[in-house]
Nucleic acid binder design. Sequence first.
DNA 1: CATTAGTATATAAACGTTTACTTATTAATT
DNA 2: AATTAATAAGTAAACGTTTATATACTAATG
Lengths: 198, 198
Amino acid sequence: MRPKNLEMESAIRTVALQIIAEEGLENLSMQKLAKAVNISPRTIYIKYENKEDLLIKLFIDEVLGAYEKATLEDFDPNAEFAEGVGKLWSNVFQYLKNNKHAFALIQYGKSSPLLNKAYKDQNIRQGDHFKPVHQFLKRHVQKGTINDFPIDVYRALLFSPLLDLVNEYFDHQERPKQIITKGVLAACCQAVIKGMLK
Amino acid sequence: MRPKNLEMESAIRTVALQIIAEEGLENLSMQKLAKAVNISPRTIYIKYENKEDLLIKLFIDEVLGAYEKATLEDFDPNAEFAEGVGKLWSNVFQYLKNNKHAFALIQYGKSSPLLNKAYKDQNIRQGDHFKPVHQFLKRHVQKGTINDFPIDVYRALLFSPLLDLVNEYFDHQERPKQIITKGVLAACCQAVIKGMLK
DNA sequence: CATTAGTATATAAACGTTTACTTATTAATT
DNA sequence: AATTAATAAGTAAACGTTTATATACTAATG
């Protein structure tokens, strides 16, 4: 039996992310993708059932998986609140800064009904990728460090400003001056922490 | 000369927003839109140059314009910091809660390159729709109430958690229990305010 | 009756996907 | 060790459909 060319599969994913980031999800087509990777359209269908399947696998496995892994790297659920949040912020920023294409698809996850649905299904099926973070937050609620909120509310408070700052970071990359400096990021992180502490 | 049917133009916009919210931007086509409004495709082209033109006008005029107007309603740039931010939050939440379809397109504004570009162009050309907010923030920087940041950074800190909470609000509308209550919203707003105060 | 709004229909290109075929590789058989 | 059969990977070209937009026409109003 002829073996799969594994490089090709990763090329498909890389180029797909690139097209999505540069031209938008609405401008990714199977034929355009195949041409860009320099393969036959049929080859994509050997590895993915159809376009939906490709997009969802791209989103869940390639993007969210790596993102979540990077977020939790060296994160200690038993850390002090400020220290823990600081670590999460620096992990996320570091990762996204170096993975602009992945970030673009993450942004689509909030708007595209297809990806949004996939995200929710994934969250329900797989339980908690972010278990260490939940553990961390729960501990601090019990210690009385922070107020008790549903987990989705913590996500909004803790991470959405950071994602917006990443967005600004990329926007200002093409401009004369970068406004999202280490200092600004640290100050914002401090503001978020201060707001949450009781 | 035969007069334009103005109802038709607003029907086009309403149905377009509906399709985008329900099926995604990538699933809006001119023919599908025409069929849904029960008009000929050509009629859309009388009112809009092409698809891009339609999308950009939908985004800028119909959605962002109304959103910004609603945000600033009865907002007093001379208010105390907590009061001013509270007003902005309640305006935004109130408006988006009642305009789910508009919210969907606003979310796309962060991911779709076409809309993103339109947004930036608009921000540059039209200067500051949000001038009262800038004025408000500047005053509080001078008074020493809050730290001095670029305006984009304020936007991330002040509004992105709120938009995420609106997203959660809609998600939980289809579930047994709404977690984004008035109390949760007020507490989050307090957290954001507290974090920003020096 | 001139002018423009609007319709029905057509266009070429692009879409997602499939069909019919070739190539590369492994494992069994000679 | 060489040959062959089996099988999956991969290609080229085409499928029917949908796309954005254009053409040719009719309807309605100043």
